[in-house]
Amino acid sequence: MSHNHNDVTAHNRETWDSKAKDYDAKPWQKKIASQVASALDSHASWLGANWTSSSNQECRLLDYACGTGSVTRALSNHITHATGLDISSQMLEQYSSLLSTSHPSLHLNTAIADFCSQDTDSSISGPDFHDFDVAGVALGFHHFNNPALCISNLAARLKKGGVLFIVDWLPKDVKPEEHIGHQHAHPSNTKEEDTEEWKKMQKTIKTNGFSENDMKTFFEGAGFDEFGFVVLEDSFILQMNGKEVRKTGFIAKGRKA
Rank of each mutant, 00 (worst) to 15 (best):
residue 257 A to T: 12
residue 138 A to L: 02
residue 215 M to S: 00
residue 198 W to Y: 14
residue 38 S to Y: 04
residue 51 W to F: 15
residue 102 S to G: 02
residue 81 H to V: 12
residue 176 P to V: 04
residue 63 D to N: 01
residue 151 I to A: 08
residue 218 F to A: 04
residue 41 D to Q: 11
residue 112 I to M: 10
residue 102 S to M: 08
residue 153 N to C: 05
residue 84 G to Y: 06
residue 16 W to S: 06
residue 163 V to S: 08
residue 38 S to L: 13
residue 180 I to K: 09
residue 201 M to D: 15
residue 13 R to L: 03
residue 99 L to T: 03
residue 226 E to G: 05
residue 103 H to M: 06
residue 117 S to V: 02
residue 87 I to R: 07
residue 73 R to H: 12
residue 166 I to C: 07
residue 97 S to M: 02
residue 22 D to H: 10
residue 198 W to N: 13
residue 37 A to L: 00
residue 143 H to A: 04
residue 138 A to F: 00
residue 3 H to Q: 12
residue 73 R to K: 13
residue 229 F to G: 06
residue 185 A to V: 06
residue 93 E to A: 15
residue 104 P to D: 00
residue 227 F to I: 09
residue 257 A to E: 13
residue 25 A to Y: 08
residue 42 S to K: 15
residue 11 H to D: 10
residue 47 L to H: 06
residue 170 L to H: 12
residue 242 G to P: 06
residue 257 A to S: 14
residue 178 E to H: 14
residue 207 T to L: 04
residue 24 D to A: 14
residue 114 D to E: 10
residue 7 D to E: 14
residue 39 A to G: 08
residue 118 Q to N: 14
residue 50 N to T: 07
residue 202 Q to H: 14
residue 132 F to K: 06
residue 63 D to T: 03
residue 86 D to I: 08
residue 30 K to E: 11
residue 160 K to Q: 12
residue 204 T to Y: 02
residue 26 K to F: 08
residue 125 S to R: 08
residue 188 S to I: 14
residue 45 S to G: 03
residue 181 G to N: 11
residue 217 T to P: 03
residue 44 A to S: 12
residue 167 V to N: 01
residue 169 W to A: 09
residue 82 A to V: 04
residue 76 S to M: 02
residue 80 T to I: 03
residue 155 A to D: 09
residue 7 D to T: 15
residue 128 D to A: 15
residue 133 D to R: 01
residue 145 N to W: 07
residue 10 A to E: 15
residue 45 S to W: 01
residue 39 A to F: 07
residue 43 H to K: 11
residue 137 V to D: 12
residue 133 D to W: 03
residue 214 D to F: 03
residue 253 K to M: 09
residue 77 N to Y: 05
residue 244 E to I: 08
residue 117 S to Q: 09
residue 60 R to C: 07
residue 27 P to H: 03
residue 229 F to R: 02
residue 154 L to T: 10
residue 43 H to P: 02
residue 255 R to W: 02
residue 5 H to R: 13
residue 24 D to L: 14
